[in-house]
C-alpha cells in the first residue's frame, strides 16, 4: 500500500515534516500515520490535523504528496529508502541528508534540495532554489553521493562544497556553481553564472555559456583550478 498526503487547507505558516519518510510510514495503519507528530510553526501537531492521509493501492514504501507542498519543509529529510512522489511544488530542505531511495518532484523545489545528501536519487521536473546539493552553513562538505536531476533551472550555490555524487541541470544555473567543491560531477545543459570558484576537485561541464573566475587556468581546452586553492577541479565548457 502507498501512503498519500494532501493538505487539508492552505497553510499559513510552514509545516516541518522531518521524520515523515517512507520507511516510517510504510506498514503503519492509517491511524498510526495520522497521529505521527510534525511541527506547524511552534506547535506540535498530528500529521492528520494538517493533511488528509489515505492508503492507496500501489508500491510499498511509496509516499505520495498531492498538491502544493511549497510550505512543507524538510520532506524526505534523511530518508533511507523507498519513494516520495510530490505532485506539485515542494518547500525547502527536500531530501536533505538523504541516505537512500528516490524523490520525484513534479513541480518546483525550493532551497537546499538534497543538501548534504549521501545516497539516493532526486528528480525535479521544474526548477530548484539555491544551495541544491550544497552544504549547510559551517559544514565541511555538501552532497556526498547520489544523484540530483533538475529538468528546469537551479538557483545559486549549486553543489557548494560537493564531495561526491552527480548533479544534472537541464536548464540554467545561477552564480557560484560548484563553489569549493572537492569531488563529484555537475553537468549543466544551459548557461551558468560564476562557475568553479574556489574549486578543489571534481568536474563541472557547462554546455552553454558560463563565467569563469580568473583563478581557473586553461589547459588543453579545459579549465583547471582553482589555482588559489591548489585545486585540481576541472571545468569543461561548450
Amino acid at each position: 500500500m502507498a501512503v498519500k498526503l494532501s493538505l487539508k487547507t492552505e497553510l499559513d505558516v510552514p509545516v516541518e515534516v522531518d521524520g515523515i519518510v517512507p520507511s516510517v510510514v510504510g506498514g503503519k495503519t492509517l491511524e498510526e500515520i495520522q497521529s505521527l507528530e510534525v511541527y506547524h510553526g511552534n506547535r506540535v501537531v498530528k500529521l492528520g490535523e494538517i493533511f488528509n492521509v489515505s492508503l492507496e493501492e500501489g508500491e510499498e514504501n511509496l509516499l505520495i504528496c498531492e498538491g502544493d507542498f511549497s510550505k512543507v519543509k524538510w520532506l524526505g529529510k534523511g530518508m533511507d529508502g523507498g519513494k516520495i512522489l510530490v505532485r506539485g511544488n515542494v518547500g525547502p530542505h527536500c531530501g536533505a541528508f538523504m541516505k537512500g531511495g528516490e524523490i520525484t518532484v513534479e513541480g518546483h523545489a525550493d532551497d537546499y534540495l538534497g543538501a548534504e545528501m549521501v545516497e539516493g536519487v532526486i528528480t525535479v521536473t521544474g526548477n530548484a532554489g539555491s544551495y541544491t546539493g550544497a552544504a549547510y552553513h559551517g559544514s565541511m562538505n555538501g552532497m556526498k553521493g547520489g544523484k540530483i536531476l533538475l529538468e528546469g533551472n537551479a538557483g545559486s550555490y549549486l553543489g557548494e562544497k560537493m564531495k561526491e555524487g552527480y548533479i544534472e541541470v537541464r536548464g540554467n544555473a545561477g552564480d557560484f556553481v560548484g563553489y569549493k567543491m572537492s569531488g563529484g560531477k555537475i553537468v549543466i545543459l544551459g548557461d551558468s553564472g560564476i562557475t568553479g570558484a574556489a574549486m578543489k576537485g571534481g568536474e563541472i561541464t557547462v554546455k552553454g555559456k558560463c563565467e569563469l573566475p580568473p583563478s581557473l587556468k586553461e589547459e588543453d581546452g579545459k579549465y583547471v583550478g582553482d589555482i588559489l586553492e591548489g585545486g585540481k577541479g576541472v571545468v569543461i565548457t561548450g
Binding site: 560564476i194 573566475p213 580568473p214 583563478s215 589555482i227 588559489l228
Partner: peptide
C-alpha cells in the same frame, strides 16, 4: 573577480 585577481597577484600568479 577583481579580488580573486588580487589574491593571484599576491600569490605570485600574475602571469596567469
Amino acid at each position: 573577480h577583481i579580488i580573486t585577481a588580487m589574491r593571484m597577484i599576491l600569490a605570485g600568479k600574475e602571469d596567469d
